[in-house]
């Protein structure tokens, strides 16, 4: 599904990602972990095409297309979804209007006719039920006055509606209490399928107890320095990142 080769990304002229190689197959869940400042969010922003993240080298192919040729909205329409670490508030725009605009923009790109109000309403109701969400949410303005937990649940709700082939979850667990975390994780697990892949970006192992990854990668100083199965997350939780930092230091001789 996604092939990242030698990806280098600079922000304000400073190189943050220094050659990322990563391959994600259909239906796989990859966790990307790492200490603060290692470039985790830069990776998600670069993949989604955010302004200010300059690709200086490397390639990214997504289902055979050269992803870097596409605008952020085109990437979204191609099926890449990001669950934001800090979802923004859009006052006066109801969640349902926002999502309808979003669903129909994506459908149009895929050559489908727009959903009618009624069809969209049913889609929304179904997903709300699936995720056990409060139905009042869709009448409220996008993220306005939402608690931290509600914002994250709302991201998962949008993901459920948009049904992306690749979901990038950027620190979805940060700021969540254990109950909210469970709801979010259950939501993600419900949506998982052999066709949808997930990149979980997280600082802590906690989330990975609920969403079990197929692979765990450690990002450090702009590179993936270690990749292994889910057991790596446990090891990181127990031993911290210092041993990895030391390994890297030893290898590079710094």
């Amino acid at each position: 599904m996604l092939k990242i080769k030698g990806l280098k990304v600079a922000v304000e002229g400073k190189e943050i990602l220094k050659g990322i190689n990563l391959e994600i197959g259909d239906g796989e869940v990859h966790a990307i972990m790492g200490p603060n400042g290692s470039g985790k969010s830069t990776l998600s922003n670069a993949l989604t095409g955010r302004e200010g993240y300059e690709i200086t080298d490397g390639t990214v192919s997504f289902n055979g297309e050269n992803l870097l040729d596409f605008s952020p909205e085109e990437r979204a329409r191609m099926g890449i979804f990001m669950s934001f670490q800090y979802p923004v508030e859009i006052p006066g725009v109801s969640m349902s209007n926002f999502l309808k605009a979003s669903v129909n923009a994506q459908r149009e790109y895929r050559g489908l006719s727009p959903l009618t109000g009624r069809e969209f309403f049913h889609l929304m109701k179904g997903k709300q039920k699936l995720l056990h969400l409060d139905s009042g949410l869709t009448n409220r303005s996008v993220n306005e006055g939402f608690s931290g937990g509600e914002k994250k649940k709302n991201e998962i709700f949008q993901m459920a509606i948009l049904d992306p082939s690749l979901a990038i979850m950027d620190e979805t667990d940060s700021g969540l209490d254990i109950d909210a975390l469970r709801v979010v994780a259950e939501g993600v697990n419900t949506l998982k399928s052999p066709h949808n892949s997930i990149i979980l970006i997280t600082h802590y192992q906690r989330l990975l107890e609920y969403i079990v990854p197929d692979f765990v990668h450690v990002l450090y100083q702009g590179r993936i320095v270690k990749s292994a199965g889910k057991e790596l997350a446990k090891e990181l939780e127990e031993r911290g990142y210092d041993w990895i930092k030391k390994e890297v230091a030893d290898e590079t001789g710094k």
Partner: peptide, 18 residues
């Protein structure tokens, strides 16, 4: 908005209307 597939023009319209 872009990340949800909404073009910049439509996003501005949406935000301003809100």
């Amino acid at each position: 908005c872009n990340q949800r597939g909404i073009s910049t023009e439509d996003a501005i319209a949406l935000i301003v209307n809100g």
